[in-house]
Amino acid sequence: MPVLEIGGTHVCAAVVDGRQIVGTIQKRPLRADGTAEEFLAAVAGAAAPLAADPAATWGVAIPDPFDYARGIALFEGVGKFEALRGLDVGAALGARIGAAGFAFLNDADAFALGEWAYGAAHGTRRCVGVTLGTGVGSGWIVDGRAVTEGPGVPPDGKVHRLTVDGTPLEDRMSRRAIRAAHRAAGGDPGADVADIAAAARAGDAAATAVLRAALGALGAALGPCLRAFGAELLVVGGSMTGSWDLFEPWFRAAAPDLPPVAVAADATASALAGAARHARAG
């Protein structure tokens, strides 16, 4: 089954057979502030080498806000893909790559579903997947289904809609928030999260304070939800998890009595597998 995983900075395309990626994952960069034409060209460029059957339905993992049932982009005020607002992404992509149809789902739900089915959370009944990258995504899984309500589940299943001391979580914990806080503390304006983490490892006090505050905000927001949900495992993925050994103590300090935490071995593969599973079920 052909699948797409669309993130804030990249798009990946692959053919998935069960849990296995067939052949090579095709990856192309995306500009979060690019035009609709640039977005469509990048996605079509990643999809083209798969030479998928025109009769196939594609599984597509894509961030919100998005109308997943209708395939229409609703991005506004989230710092990415603003040019797509109102676009029928399914129709536009179908015309580009010759697909019969698309089964869209949230990218964090796809990641969590893939981890439940094939990854670190396999064998659990209740697990949560959190992606840490451009923003904070979350998927809440009960018996192999992504849920958006119930004890501990944040509004619509989206942890980024939570607040910490009245401030939206992503204004405290996200790539843009960490970089802005680091600049405000006198850090290198060009430093990205990995650079700030490296500085913290080297003993830089400002970098350490910025990251401790960001991970503390995540723990304060997410911890009560995880406990009320009854999560057996939290799986983290995304570009920031290369520094999770540094981050986890700060996260746990703000969120005691948490379930075990596992770092996804391959978050992209999990999201692709989750998107394929969703498309098959639909």
Rank of each mutant, 00 (worst) to 15 (best):
C127N: 03
G94P: 00
I62S: 01
T134D: 04
A83Y: 07
A32R: 15
G45T: 08
Y68N: 10
S138H: 10
P155Y: 06
G133M: 12
F66S: 03
P65E: 13
T131G: 08
V78M: 07
A121W: 01
G45Q: 06
F39G: 04
L93K: 09
T167R: 07
A120T: 00
A56L: 07
G59Q: 05
I62A: 05
A52S: 08
T148V: 15
T57H: 13
T134I: 10
A146G: 14
T131V: 12
P155V: 07
I72W: 06
T131L: 13
A103Q: 05
T148G: 14
H160N: 14
A61M: 10
E115Y: 03
C127W: 02
P54S: 11
G94H: 08
A73P: 02
D107V: 06
A99M: 13
A99C: 15
T167K: 00
V164Y: 03
A91V: 15
A146V: 11
R125T: 15
Y118M: 02
G77F: 08
V164I: 13
D156N: 10
T57I: 15
L169N: 00
F39I: 06
I72A: 11
A103S: 15
V136Q: 08
T35I: 13
P151H: 15
D109P: 02
D156R: 13
G150N: 11
F104K: 07
T134H: 05
G137L: 12
V142A: 11
D171I: 06
L113F: 06
A41Q: 09
G98T: 11
P154Q: 04
V153E: 03
L132R: 14
V136N: 10
A48F: 04
K80M: 11
A92H: 13
A120K: 04
V147E: 14
E149A: 15
A112H: 03
L113R: 11
K80P: 00
G119K: 02
T134F: 03
G166N: 04
E149D: 14
D64L: 13
D165T: 05
Y118R: 07
V89Q: 04
I62K: 06
G144W: 13
